[in-house]
Design a protein around this nucleic acid. Structure first.
Lengths: 332, 332
DNA sequence: TTGTAGGCGTTATCAA
DNA sequence: TTGATAACGCCTACAA
């Protein structure tokens, strides 16, 4: 198949390549309306389709954004991605989506490819096991914004939600309901959200004069199975608790399943609070009490911030923290 | 920021651009191992990052695939997309994801952009209101594969699931359970799956000597709200039925909600069967009896087929039909 | 307002 | 096995 190029349109319309280029790109100021019309007609007649690859090479812009997330099948991410894509589309960008499965190597490979493809910027839900790959981004001065997680001494642009508060309001709610022994099944501590939720957890205990008990903390849970396994082990080892605060709704589902399997009633005997407020959590077997994260906004605000960075409008670091909310349903 | 190019690597390593290019691309046959090593060292020392845009312009390959779906937040799609991405990655492609929200104009715009970006091929879950945009793809000889839906007189490569069978086994199951008045809340009839499920529905009725009753068919449902609204209207208008066959699990959720709202017990008074077998349908308030579509495979097989088309290994049309399966849980 | 010339960074072709 | 040269299709200066 033969490509129809600007040259062809130029020849047919009788104008030069540059004039044709300008006309087709709506650089109205510098092109006669009449010329524009004739050029457009020629282009249409020929079935001309601009070659964005060539344009990108010359203009050094791809209007593509790289997006890396753990796994689109994790119900946390679809809304985030949707928020990104909607906003990206409005601003003329497309998104290239990569799943990392929480593996640093995968993240690193994805970023390398995306850099080679010269994306204009990146939205990254980082794995957090290492950040050498992000430093490389910085070195190459490629704009990027982290979503959902952030690093501590390593300063970045990011959009996260208030994890300290999220854990705090959840625990406070449980305490008000009379719970004193609250089992926290947290995520891996290399994840900032896990660390910060731990802070919120401890803060809520402290403010209510409850002593922190290490035995009531397990880390490393990410998936449903982790919740299931952890709770089962806890029960078999006769751990004493009346409520569970899970790292995610997914983990909470596993916990509830495990609890029921062991003959416990939720929430009557043991209360369970999740985190994320994933879609369809409301229609779950047991509607989940959970902490709502504004997922769509995480994506859309992330994209907006990235766009500002790409445009060079903002140079100093921006750290956006979105608010969270306790959603009270039936599991606690 | 200054780009480091092949030229720079060439100068430093003392070889020509072409040799450097070959060495870095692992065209082993035509390059001295010793040369290769020196070139790679120079590249590393300089921090050279190949420019895929330039490469694409020259080689006419982008190793990018366009993907259009209705909405990543529809729980049907994450698995599909994951199947696509996993397979794409293994074959060296990235995916550019676009949501169409079932709007033809959005699909058309997305395809135009993706064509301009010169994606190597497209995976499309088509809106189906029109297909001029797909004809244009064909005219431009851009490989594409449809997923989940297909057109009738318009022949395409596609991967779908067996919708006739899916509806058939669902209805047959209901009939065996004693149901005779089965209310079908179908999708819009411009969608092939909706038309074919209707065929399966009618076939099952016919084989069991049950006369088709037009009043027991409503079309156009896509979302949960549609299911809710439709069932409410049906009940208020005293429509007589003992079971509902919904177009999707989402619609089924709406139906169940509506039914409960009107004081009906599911499945005791009215049975409900969904379609898709979305994740977490199992943990729903009322675990859904549904027809399982192999969503991940829809994506992975679609991508495999597309890859064959791109490689030019297959020229004649391929229509892949994946098998479905009835999942019996509690709603019917 | 339009045209000319050159280059973006790579790979393909051909010759050495 | 390596090198020289010419595209790939477009946009950006700059000149007219």
């Amino acid at each position: 198949m033969i490509q129809i190029t600007l040259d062809d349109v130029a020849k047919i319309s009788g104008f030069s390549k540059s004039t044709v280029s300008r006309a087709l790109r709506n650089e109205d100021k510098y092109v006669n309306p009449c010329t524009k019309k004739r050029v457009e007609e020629a282009a249409r007649k020929l079935g001309y389709t601009p070659n964005a690859v060539a344009r990108s090479l010359r203009s050094r812009k791809t209007t593509s954004i790289g997006v890396t997330i753990a796994d689109i099948c994790n119900p946390f991410f679809p809304s985030v991605v949707r928020g990104i894509e909607d906003t990206a589309r409005k601003k003329g960008y497309n998104i290239i989506l990569c799943n990392t499965d929480e593996k640093y190597e995968r993240e690193k490979e994805a970023l390398e490819t995306l850099i080679q493809k010269r994306v204009d910027g990146l939205l990254i839900a980082p794995v957090q096991k290492k950040f050498d790959d992000l430093l490389e981004l910085q070195r190459q001065k490629i704009p990027f914004v982290l979503i959902g997680r952030h690093f501590d001494p390593f300063e970045t642009n990011h959009v996260i939600s208030d994890d300290v508060k999220g854990a705090f309001i959840a625990i406070e709610y449980l305490i008000k309901k009379g719970h004193k022994k609250i089992f926290m099944i947290n995520g891996p501590s290399y994840i900032s959200s896990a660390r910060e939720r731990m802070m919120g957890y401890k803060k809520a205990l402290a403010e209510n004069s409850i002593k922190f008990d290490v035995r009531l903390l397990k880390e490393g849970a990410l998936k449903m199975e982790d919740g299931y396994r952890t709770i089962k082990k806890a029960i078999l080892s006769k751990l004493n608790f009346t409520a569970v605060f899970a790292y995610s709704d997914l983990v909470a589902f596993g916990v509830i399943k495990g609890l029921k399997g062991q003959g416990y009633k939720v929430p009557e005997e043991i209360a369970v609070v999740g985190y994320d407020n994933i879609d369809f959590g409301f229609s779950a077997e047991l509607p989940l009490t959970t902490v709502h994260i504004p997922k769509y906004e995480l994506g859309s605000e992330g994209m907006k911030l990235l766009h500002r960075r790409i445009d060079g409008k903002v140079n100093k670091l921006q750290k956006i923290v979105l608010d969270v909310e306790l959603i009270i349903r039936e599991s606690a």
